[in-house]
Amino acid sequence: MTHQTDDTNGTSEAETLRSRRHFLEKVATITFGTMTLTLFPGWSGSDEESSGSDGEKPSNDDQPPVFGYLVDTRKCVGTGKCLTACRVENDVPDGCHRTWVERYVHFKDGTVQVDLVPETGYADSDMAAINPDDVERAYFVPKNCNHCEDAPCNQVCPVHASFTSPEGVTLIDDERCIGCAYCVQACPYGVRFINPVTETADKCTWCYHRIMRSEAPACVEACPVGARIFGRLDDPNSEISRRIAKFPTHVLKEHLGTRPTTRYIGISGEVT
């Protein structure tokens, strides 16, 4: 009896071992098999999708325009005309700004003062006068949304309300925006705000409604000295393309890797 029992036990143990080995072999085959199969793109499901989008890809003539925005700080005289134009065009509420103009004043003692150009210009404004003899150099820097190619604001939007249009313009879908202001925090340039009227995020759109009708953005149209230049970068004969080819340009906070598309002439690293 004892012998028989031993024998039975021995057989069942062997079976258990064999089935375990089978199991492990199968697991290994399936795992490595799947991994190997994914190496061939022809076997994965994504192939159909990519060939489908290839078929829909527009031809060269249908490519969306590539817009560019250039600010020539050597020309800006701080009239504030762009600020009023933007406010009127886009119905921006008081206290909010889609665009603004900073004045950098570098004094001879090494200090730097940055203030905002009033919307009515400096004439008749109650800003403290600066003695020109104390100033080493001073200039105006108009600012608005940089329409980054790698925009952090788009990345953080939880409802896909912030996005980049095919033309490279960063826009906000008012209908989807829930006003969480996460993008306001994410923008390193501080161009976004929560519009108190619509209670959604708001910012410069390069006047998307105007540029799609081949009109210039309101601020560009209003600038009396040509400090703001807007145009198509895909046209080598446009004013903006010619100027970018002629002068060295700079973008704001380049080290952040957001790849801003708004370029500046005549400023250096101290302007951020």
Binding site: G78, T79, Y122, D124, I130, Y139, P224
Partner: peptide
């Protein structure tokens, strides 16, 4: 004067 007043900057 919005344009023509001389201002630092």
């Amino acid at each position: 004067l919005a344009c023509h007043q001389k201002v630092v900057g």
